[in-house]
């Protein structure tokens, strides 16, 4: 019963939502708008247990009741607690420009996030090195085309013999070969998404709610 009610709701609401896509009347558009406006409401309710679970998880680390307790983890959990409550209290007090909340957001949150983003370059280099190091036919082919595209995109082809042809081939490869492969993948993804949606609506796929088929 506990599992049948959500499955029934998913079926009914899924079918209604699909039909509303194919019905163009003022009331159908209103119904879609109403259903969409409920989503933020659900999100607002979900944030309460999420915050509680997160604080409980860090609490276990702070009090060294977790799986593999270490002082380093406890300190990190303590920092998280301080950061969380500082942001919460300052945000409740004021989130206007120039407030403590705003200052912390601009001077701590944004630089930390930007630092992580900039680290991505090194991760790309590291992953690419590992991929190219493996000497298999398709990785060698991948490397040849990667070098070709890099050379032409950086403008280095102007300094090498037959550079113009390299450039033309690279452009053709990106605009034709690459796009064709991308479209093939996208068609597969679209069919897969649709099929998964249908499986969920008709209750064939139940693994997302813990049960088998």
């Amino acid at each position: 019963m506990q599992r049948n009610i959500p499955l029934f709701l998913v079926f009914i609401l899924g079918i209604i939502y699909v039909l509303l896509t194919f019905i163009e009347t003022s009331w159908s558009e209103g119904a879609v708008r109403l259903a969409s406006s409920w989503a933020p409401l659900l999100s607002m309710w979900a944030i309460v247990p999420a915050t509680y679970v997160t604080l409980a998880s860090y609490g276990r680390r702070l009090t060294k009741r977790d799986r593999n307790p270490t002082t380093q983890k406890a300190i990190l959990a303590g920092v998280t607690y301080v950061a969380f409550f500082t942001m919460l209290i300052s945000g409740l007090k004021s989130n206007a420009e120039g407030s403590l909340f705003d200052w912390m957001f601009r001077n701590i949150q944004i630089p930390v996030t930007s630092t992580m983003f900039s680290l991505l370059t090194f991760y790309i280099a590291s992953a690419a090195y590992r991929a190219f190091r493996v000497s298999r036919a398709h990785t060698s082919l991948l490397m040849v085309f990667a070098v070709l595209v890099m050379v032409t995109n950086t403008g280095m082809h102007t300094y090498i013999p037959f550079g113009q042809y390299w450039n033309e081939f690279s452009t053709w490869f990106l605009m034709t070969g690459n796009v064709a492969a991308k479209r093939a993948i996208l068609i597969g993804v679209a069919v897969g998404m649709l099929a998964t949606n249908i499986r969920i609506i008709f209750g064939i796929e139940r693994s997302w709610m813990g049960g088998g088929a």
């Binding site: 993948i185 597969g188 099929a195 998964t196 249908i198 499986r199 796929e205 088998g212």
Partner: peptide, 23 residues
């Protein structure tokens, strides 16, 4: 698991007849 493989993998791994047939 790339592209549609992501959508087929869960169904196939579950080894449930109905899910595999839907793939």
């Amino acid at each position: 698991l790339l592209g549609e493989e992501l959508y087929a993998a869960g169904a196939q791994l579950s080894e449930e007849k109905r899910l595999v047939n839907s793939v």
